[in-house]
Design a protein around this nucleic acid. Structure first.
Length: 662
DNA sequence: GATCCAAGGCCTAGCGAGGT
DNA sequence: ACCTCGCTAGGCCTTGGATC
């Protein structure tokens, strides 16, 4: 490339660049221009390196200032020189020659417009030159729409420093540091043989707007968002489908006698768990009602009976999403037992149905235990030991209802079932219907012997409440429990009926009282119990118990079972007792329920009698366990006694032997 | 009266579901 | 993760009947 002549900065002379031969300063090979003026008009040496600018394929022109970056200290020559700065005014449209020492690289007129520079000729009118200079080239560049990269103060052209009085002179003398250092251009990456990627794939097609998100990113973001949206829709659909499948209701309707029921499954068209038996639903299962007869029957699983309801009856399907209906004139429901018996008892799958598998294993263990118990249990040789393991058998001895003699009083006449329920519920509003009236009772209860503990027991009036203790079978096998148990208070005034709230509080206190077991004990008698209050559930009537169970399952929204229970029964809610009672009620046959409910508020209608009739579902197992425990306890006691005797013999022998020897 | 036995009542621990 | 609630299981205690 032929070196173009460079105009001297101090004279009009054009200087041809020369190559540096010396490498003393590391500039070997670089071109420089030097001028000392003419012989007629000599001037101090003007020196400048000449940098060759090669046109870039991506850069619009070598003069584009925004393509330059600030040179580093090491890159900066002592006197860099090049064709930069431009020889003409940088203001677009102005091609006037400029003073090379102009900090703005503009003609005088445009420099003055921009605020001037230290040059005297470029000083704005009515102002001191060089004082108003924005100091950096970037300011001018920005005002002209070109983007100079800021030059650090240490690298800034000293000629642009404000207030440097000697600077202009140095410049004019040609000794000063060179004019603004042009940043070096960004060298384009050699494309080589690699093809240029498409514009959409280039993340930085125009570095001037590098902050702008390129399509390559926006498209990816859009794809991600689209995927996310699709997944959300899919999840919502899956959730809804799962909910619909989970909350489905099966309706079986018997339309006529000895005919198979019409079955229909409903999903989603109702708000779980309340299902409205609308006309459309009934017509779907074939049950068409007339305007004059909007009645039909719904089976109540809890009470095991058919109940007459009206059109648009709302039924809660929680726990049992199967609704059994029948027309009013249907008496015989074919295959009815199929819908009321629990699910099949086939062998459960060991992997698919772990819950039933566990249950099955547990049942097998129980069965073996019962068989072993039956084998090891003493044969019913004892006359009184007629206890058979079949607790549900009719041979079970009846328990004498002696503890809580009833005074049926107003409940003696048992009205029909529904009216009974209404009566008892109406009592709730006025006075608690199931709460004891605290009558001092007599009859059989008083006949039962009052056994006082062998030690001289103080009278009930003298027993402090806090040391109240019940009898414990000291002689029999001891079943110690580490927990504080509920003790009946016996020192409460037996007759005086106190307000319900106080009784309740009293009971609650007693329930939470931790009574020490090594205090003088006193056996609680039937009299004490009967004179205090009724016990749940044995002292309550079956009709009342059924009402309470019905009210508690499920409890009204916002209420717990305990609160509902305590609002009906004036007694602290004991979950285990409640569920035991509930289980017994559920296990009972419909005949037993009807029979005991029909007894009403009579002595026969007491829950204790019902409990004697209907065993607990695991009563056999409990009895067997208890039997085994007693047996083990007895064996242990006998062994200990035998050991004691033998040790006594040994000691007597040892004690007697010396005497004998003596 | 002592003893055995069965049954009922009550306790704690623990699980599972649902909500926060 | 934590809590509450419903529910169950297993064990202990109490009571009362039957028998010796």
């Amino acid at each position: 490339m032929a070196e173009q002549p460079v105009k001297c900065g101090d004279c009009p002379k054009l200087v041809t660049p020369q190559k540096t031969w010396s490498d003393r300063n590391g500039n070997q090979g670089r071109l420089y221009a030097m001028c000392k003026g003419t012989t007629e008009q000599p001037h101090p040496q003007w020196f400048r390196f000449v940098t060759e600018l090669t046109p870039s394929p991506t850069l619009p022109s070598p003069n584009s200032y925004d393509q330059w970056i600030a040179p580093t200290e090491s890159q900066q020559p002592a006197f860099p020189a090049s064709t930069f700065p431009p020889t003409t005014c940088v203001v677009p449209g102005c091609d006037k020659r400029i003073n090379q020492r102009c900090a703005r690289h503009a003609c005088a007129a445009h420099c003055r417009i921009q605020g001037g520079c230290p040059l005297a000729a470029h000083a704005p009118k009515n102002s001191e030159p060089a004082q108003a200079l924005p100091a950096t080239s970037q300011s001018s560049a920005s005002s002209w729409g070109v983007g100079h990269v800021p030059i650090p103060p240490t690298q800034q052209d000293p000629s642009t420093r404000i207030g440097d009085a000697n600077h202009a002179q140095m410049l004019s003398a040609g000794y000063g540091p060179p004019p603004p250092i042009p940043p070096r251009p960004i060298q384009p990456i050699a494309s080589g043989s690699r093809p240029e990627p498409p514009a959409s794939m280039n993340p930085l097609p125009n570095p001037r707007y590098a902050s702008q998100i390129r399509p390559i990113f926006t498209e990816e973001l859009a794809q991600k968002q689209e995927l996310l949206r699709a997944r959300q829709i899919q999840d919502a659909e899956r959730l809804e489908a799962a909910n619909r499948a989970k909350h489905e209701v099966t309706i079986c309707a018997w339309l006529s006698d000895n005919e198979e029921p019409q079955s229909c499954i409903f999903q989603g068209d109702f708000i779980w768990p309340n299902f409205v038996l609308k006309a459309s639903v009934l017509s779907d299962v074939g049950l068409v009602l007339g305007l004059d007869k909007p009645w039909f029957k719904v089976y109540n699983h809890a009470r095991k009976l058919w109940e007459r309801v009206r059109l648009n009856h709302v039924i809660s399907v929680q726990g049992r999403p199967e609704i059994l209906l029948k027309a009013l004139d249907v008496d015989v429901c074919q295959d009815f037992s199929k819908f009321t018996t629990p699910p099949s008892t086939a062998a459960p799958h060991i992997r698919n149905d772990l819950k039933r598998e566990r249950e099955s294993v547990k049942q097998k263990g129980r069965k073996r235990f019962l068989e072993a118990d039956a084998g090891s249990a003493p044969a019913p040789s004892r006359k009184r030991g007629s206890a058979s393991l079949s607790c549900g058998s009719s041979t079970k001895r009846p328990r004498r209802q002696s503890r809580s003699p009833r005074s049926p009083s107003s409940h003696l006449t048992a009205p029909p079932r529904h009216s009974q329920r209404q009566v008892s519920l109406s009592h709730t509003s006025s006075s608690p219907p199931f709460h004891d009236n605290h009558q001092a009772t007599s009859t059989k209860g008083s006949q039962s012997p009052i056994s006082v503990s062998s030690s001289a027991a103080p009278s009930p009036a003298r027993i402090p409440a806090n040391i109240l203790e019940l009898t414990d079978s000291d002689s029999g096998p001891s079943f110690r429990t580490p927990v504080a148990r509920h003790r009946r208070p016996v020192d409460v005034a037996p007759v005086a009926p106190s307000p319900p709230a106080s009784i309740k509080q009293e009971r609650s206190d007693v329930a939470t009282r931790n009574t020490p077991r090594r205090t003088p004990r006193r056996r609680v008698t039937s009299t004490d119990i009967s004179t205090f209050s009724k016990r749940w559930p044995s002292d309550y009537h079956v009709v009342d118990v059924a009402t309470v169970l019905e009210a508690c399952t499920p409890p009204p929204p916002g209420m717990t079972i305990a609160r509902v229970f305590e609002s009906h029964v004036f007694q602290t809610f004991k979950p285990s007792t409640f569920y035991d009672t509930k289980d017994r009620w559920n296990v009972a046959s419909q005949e037993d329920r009807d029979a005991f409910e029909s007894y009403g508020y009579t002595e026969e209608g007491l829950w204790s009698g019902f409990a004697s009739r209907v065993p607990m579902k695991n009563a056999t197992m409990r009895a067997a366990r208890q039997r085994q425990t007693r047996l083990a306890c007895r064996i242990k006691t006998q062994r200990e006694e035998a050991d004691d005797i033998s040790s006594q013999d040994d000691s007597s022998d040892s004690s007697s032997s010396p005497s004998l020897s003596n």
